[in-house]
Amino acid sequence: MAEAAVAKNQGMTFGKNERKLLVDPLSTNNPITVQVLGICSALAVTTGMKNSLVMAIAVVFVTMFSSLITSALRNSIPKQVRMIVQLVIIATLVTIVELTLKAVSYDSYKQLSVFIGLIITNCIVMGRLEAFAMGNDPYRSTLDGIGNGIGYGIILMAVAFVRELFGKGELFGYKIIGSSSEYAVNTAADGSWMGWYQPNNLMILFPAAMFVIAVMIWIHRAWKPQLVDVS
């Protein structure tokens, strides 16, 4: 619990430490590329950017409120049952997300339903509750929750960008590149500068998510050498 030392000073100020809570998970302490948590859903929902965006929003909501609630209750949660209590809080929030999504965007609900439920098992959420929210005040825990949710979300979107663009030739379902007149860059047309390109079906398959994430981890560590595990 190294992070527990971060929040020594209390109160609703937004100083260097609070900024760190919010920004660190975006890069130097990213849940996916550094902590390697939440990989399972990152593999599953990243075939399209729209689904990834909905998933990212759902996870930010869950990490934010579960951190807030757990932190507010941290002194009254009996230690013997704390994991179960955390799980109930997460499961409640996930069910709220699921019911709301079903009412607001039925199509997204249909496409994501299984994976929304699986946020419960997303290691990031429970990891943050155990490591941070149980030992810090609600304000800082909320910031930490938002930071980690967004850190997860941006990687999700980045992976989905690569997979959807190269796999389907689309972004957010809009046709960008492919061999048909419906696409913005029509690769079937003779002499087109991108005429050689064909959407690569492999990018839609799960292994592609594996190596796209791996390449991202590689790039991330080349860019920030302090992340390299020397052991």
């Binding site: 009254s76 949660i77 009996p78 230690k79 013997q80 049952v81 179960i84 209590v85 109930v88 409640t92 069910t95 709220i96 019911l99």
Partner: peptide
């Protein structure tokens, strides 16, 4: 916490969650 407190906490929490959902 002693067992009574744990049971009380769990009961209250479960009721609240059930009602909300």
């Amino acid at each position: 916490h002693n067992t009574n407190q744990v049971i009380k906490f769990v009961l209250i929490m479960t009721t609240l969650v059930a009602l909300t959902l």
